[in-house]
């Protein structure tokens, strides 16, 4: 795990320009080398991410397009993980601490980009995914994939600068690009940005993601839990007190207990 002290302090990221990708696969080869993964078959154009491939280049929608962890600004995986095995670092990478993971796979179920992969063949498996080369970033070097890319289709830099560059490229050649930087706002913004001349849906990226960070959807409910617990507790205690008192009074007066209807046992959900 990278030393937090030497992590870059401005969020870094990647800009992927699908119009520049020639499908050479150098990014996936470099990724495999950096992560000690088996050498990928770069001739395959339909490869999927796996526990042995943290990035792949696919031919889809008439373009070569990379697939990798998007490194969300507010990661869903980090939000759902009950033991806090995922963490968004200040420098951009969303990193995974395998020593905490208990293998519930909620991250895999919840990731809006279906990125995390599991070591299904192992008896004691880990979740595997791209870590944006966090240790390399800590040494001030770019990600392996960006270092290997011969066309600048994958570019590394501070996210702000990349976003500005993406917008500049689009503005300079409006006919060449769709007027959208994917990842600028999708799922609340991601460290990995894409620009393209074909729709992102055609490239296999989900195009219906909310522009709000997904963890907010749960947090809106979760943050109410303490207040709800207290309110419900007080309410129920109140009900108990009232019904109990009614019974005591009834007993004193020698009447049968009131409120003994079948619907009395409901409370508002």
């Amino acid at each position: 795990m990278s030393n937090p002290a030497s992590e870059p302090h401005t969020p870094q990221g990647l800009l992927i320009d699908t119009t520049r990708c020639i499908g050479c696969g150098a990014c996936s080869l470099a990724c495999a080398e950096r992560n000690g993964l088996p050498v990928p078959d770069t001739a395959r154009r339909d490869a999927d991410l796996s526990d042995r491939a943290f990035t792949v280049v696919r031919a889809q929608g008439g373009r070569f397009v990379r697939r990798l962890c998007m490194h969300c600004d507010e990661p869903t995986c980090a939000s759902v993980c009950l033991v806090g095995a995922f963490r968004k670092t200040a420098g951009g990478p969303v990193v995974y601490d395998e020593s905490r993971c208990i293998g519930c796979r909620y991250c895999m179920q919840a990731c809006p980009f279906t990125v995390p992969r599991y070591e299904w063949d192992k008896v004691l498996p880990r979740v595997r995914k791209c870590d944006l080369c966090a240790p390399r970033l800590a040494e001030g070097r770019p990600t392996a994939c960006a270092a290997a890319c011969p066309t600048g289709a994958t570019r590394f830099g501070p996210r702000d600068a990349l976003l500005a560059e993406a917008r500049a490229r689009i503005a300079a050649e409006p006919g060449r690009y769709l007027p959208q930087v994917y990842g600028a706002v999708e799922a609340g913004g991601t460290s990995v940005l894409l620009i393209s001349d074909v729709s992102f849906a055609a490239l296999g990226y989900p195009d219906d993601l909310p522009h709000e960070a997904l963890p907010a959807l749960t947090w809106r409910v979760m943050s109410q839990v303490p207040r709800f617990a207290v309110t419900a507790g007080v309410f129920l205690a109140g009900v108990y007190w009232i019904t109990n008192r009614r019974e005591e009074v009834a007993a004193e007066q020698g009447r049968p207990a009131p409120g003994d209807g079948p619907d009395a046992g409901r409370e508002a959900p």
Binding site: C81, V83, G84, C101, I102, Y106, P215, M222
Partner: peptide
């Protein structure tokens, strides 16, 4: 083997 992590490693943002 690590089910007990759930007791000691907290992430209050998680529904789980």
């Amino acid at each position: 083997d690590r089910f007990w992590h759930a007791l000691f490693m907290w992430n209050p943002h998680s529904v789980m």
